[in-house]
């Protein structure tokens, strides 16, 4: 019961500050003080209290986009363990359900974008579709590497086996999986070098341009969903990199430190790297796929459990 409550608390409390942490790190590196850690939270609250303006072109599909995107990400968040090897809503084969839930959210975000009838949104949806399709194999291969040692396709089984048998540095396959998942995280959450969340030109955006027309509570839903996605994918990587024990205190502590580490890493990457040219992004993602595939092969060669 305690575990479940803690999981829920983290799911509700942490994603937005994590997003804030990324911004803070970026500001520090740029020599600025940066906004407070809770700035994304204030933004969301402000949006939730507003009314809304809808385009005359749109239909209910437009309103359904944020709702479905948020709820599928929440469900994905309930599936992934956070700080302990099991999660409140884990089941067999939940790894695949997890990946497809992210896909569901994306599908509806893209349709909602096309519902506005604007070329900007169409452009964003097209890019999102292209890059997500290429990121998908990398995600699945990485999740595969995660699951093979345990012999079962659920996060619970996979993370229960990881700390016992070997941590990251004991197995090159896991290292490559973490690398591929890192790329997938950057692509899925539209961060540099795939997309720039702070860009000001619609023509160069991917995620931001898809949600240009949303406002009020809808936009708040999108922001929450976005932060959650970062948090959820981050927690998969944290569990992969840090062997988190089932202990009731060290586990959560390690988990929190890991998530903060991911936020810092994303911040650093955003500060030191430039955005890739759009035509180069596919190569980046194909590279992630190849890396994950090599990881699986290494796992094969290293003798399967």
């Amino acid at each position: 019961m305690f575990d479940v409550l803690m999981h829920l608390a983290w799911l509700i409390l942490l994603p937005l500050p994590m997003l804030g942490l990324v911004t803070v790190v970026k500001s520090w590196i740029a020599g600025r003080r940066g906004p407070p850690l809770l700035q994304p939270f204030h933004d969301v609250v402000k949006l939730l209290r507003k009314g809304a303006v809808y385009s005359r072109t749109t239909t209910w599909v437009f309103a359904a986009g944020p709702v479905v995107a948020l709820s599928s990400t929440v469900l994905a968040g309930l599936i992934v363990p956070m700080g302990s090897p099991s999660s409140p809503f884990g089941f067999s084969a939940d790894v695949i359900v997890f990946a497809y839930l992210l896909g569901l959210g994306r599908f509806f975000t893209m349709t909602a974008a096309l519902d506005t009838g604007s070329a900007f949104e169409g452009m964003g949806a097209s890019r999102e579709g292209a890059f997500a399709a290429l990121a998908e194999p990398a995600l699945f291969l990485a999740l595969m590497i995660l699951c093979v040692p345990a012999g079962g396709m659920s996060f619970g089984e996979a993370f229960a086996v990881l700390p016992a048998s070997h941590g990251l540095l004991r197995s090159p396959g896991l290292l490559l999986a973490a690398l591929a998942l890192g790329v997938v995280l950057l692509a899925e959450t539209s961060r540099i070098p795939v997309d720039d969340p702070n860009t000001h030109l619609e023509l160069t955006m991917i995620h931001e341009v898809m949600v240009l027309d949303h406002g009020g509570p809808d936009l708040a839903f999108i922001q929450i969903g976005y932060a959650l996605k970062l948090f959820v994918l981050g927690s998969v990587i944290v569990h992969l990199v840090l062997p988190i024990p089932a202990d009731s205190w060290t586990g959560p502590a390690a988990f929190l430190a890991g998530q903060a580490g991911i936020a810092v890493a994303v911040g650093i990457i955003e500060s030191v790297m430039a955005r890739l040219r759009l035509s180069r992004v596919p190569q980046f993602l194909i590279g992630a796929c190849v890396v994950a595939a090599v990881g699986v092969l290494v796992l094969f060669t290293g003798g399967r459990p």
Binding site: P282, Q283, I286, G287, V290, V294
Partner: peptide, 13 residues
């Protein structure tokens, strides 16, 4: 270049 990267992946496999 995409193709070359993919081919390299295939060669590794």
């Amino acid at each position: 270049l995409h193709l070359s990267l993919l081919l390299c992946g295939v060669l590794v496999g």
